[in-house]
Design a protein around this nucleic acid. Structure first.
Lengths: 235, 235
DNA sequence: CGCGCTAATGCCACTGAGTGGCATAACTGT
DNA sequence: ACAGTTATGCCACTCAGTGGCATTAGCGCG
């Protein structure tokens, strides 16, 4: 068998990839599950690596699958699309965010602030070795790859809709058709993307706390974006 | 030849589809151009019709092309993808918006307001017969079709980046890396999508001025989305 | 320790989107 | 009417994504 080199791949795959979902000690998961996680992580890491060097469209799925010794059929049981595998790191963050929303209690402060803190908390959870590196590769890739960007945007949009459902379920707003909660979520997403953009263009390999900084900056810039004026004679 | 029924299709195709781009009197365009526009419009209309009745994935491109008597090769010279043809109506609006941005002068009022007015002006330009019906079909379709939604989101994102470039070129902001202009654009897009959502779910066939109303509502809800608070004992 | 049970995997064939190349037809201006 | 340009049609091809079915591998139980 080719089992010898099957798992000899860039990073360590024994850590969790479940991000912040069930905070289970996956070291004690059934063997079958751990294998699945290893394979999933292997696919993600090799995808990021090979897409980065040869371009997203420069690599066929067959090639990727060959590199990880997985059948294409199995690939599609783990990822929805070719784009999906390369967007996994960011998706982990948003899943953690949704999870945070489930447990947080309102404290009388603005909803927008609560959402921002949930996102910070989600970021804190991304403790896997090399998570920031993966996100970085993923984002830099997405910038050059329209279809990846599109899938990423849709995922965020979908997530914000799910989050909206959670908000309505947990804290009952007086008016069920109030636009503001939805807008608050969209603003959060917009600011986050802004921050992510900046972070992605930092030199070298920025850290997770760099991202937190960029997020803080974007969040504080948010109110000013509605009031910013340009004086007519500026031209 | 099948030329007899070639253009016998749902709507009138002699009107412009150039939305708000060059405000040319396309009644006096060269014959070749008018034919192209007719074909383009025929593809859009039949696509919307047939996607609506049989579902986006229930229709192959070959079928669509057959219905309009166009080769698949030609289809792809006019549209970037299968999704693209069904998203054309909304794209016209954003192109008109970009065009508005090119000519508008700052008047000392907030940038966000200026952007909103540019979008209103763009909406005013969408005077084609049945534009609202097309947007409606397009949006209702996008709701059920993830890939369409994704392409739509990406197009908006791309447009807002282009707009950002225009802003920086025409009105020189003091700080070139100020996040606020970018955020202002993203908020505009978010509010617009919010409005479009509401509009799409109105009963019957809402009008263009209904959309303007929904947009106004979304824009005015924008500031409140940052300050909205939930009281802790609301649960 | 071995033996079914279940669920994931691999394999194969197939659909359909999207592309490149090249010959042909259709409009253009003179 | 004629030459020049430009879009179109056709053909063959790649590759993402899917369904069905046989095979394998981890799991639990005696």
């Amino acid at each position: 068998m080719a089992l010898a080199r099957k798992w000899r791949l860039p990073l360590g795959y024994d850590q969790a990839m479940t991000a912040g979902l069930p905070p289970t000690d996956n070291g004690r998961l059934p063997l079958r599950e751990r294998k699945k996680l290893r394979m999933r992580q292997a696919l993600i890491d090799t995808a990021l690596e090979v897409f980065t060097t040869r371009g997203f469209s420069g690599v066929t799925l067959d090639e990727l699958c060959d590199a990880v010794d997985v059948s294409k059929r199995t690939f599609f049981r783990n990822f929805a699309s070719k784009e999906d595998v390369a967007m996994a790191p960011t998706q982990d963050l948003w899943r953690a965010f949704l999870d945070e929303l489930e447990t947080r209690e309102p404290d009388g402060r603005p909803l927008a602030e609560m959402l921002q803190q949930a996102l910070f908390a989600a970021l804190e959870r991304m403790t896997e070795e090399g998570w920031n590196r993966r996100v970085l590769l993923s984002r830099r890739l997405a910038e050059k790859t329209p279809s990846m960007d599109a899938h990423g945007l849709r995922f965020c949009h979908e997530t914000s809709r799910t989050a909206l459902g959670t908000l309505h379920r947990r804290l009952h707003f007086p008016a069920p058709d109030d636009l503001r909660p939805q807008l608050a979520l969209d603003l959060l997403v917009a600011a986050f993307h802004c921050a992510l953009d900046r972070w992605t263009h930092r030199p070298d390999t920025p850290t997770r706390s760099d991202l937190a900084t960029d997020m803080r900056n974007a969040f504080t810039a948010l109110p000013g974006s509605l009031t910013l004026t340009v004086n007519p004679q500026a031209r």
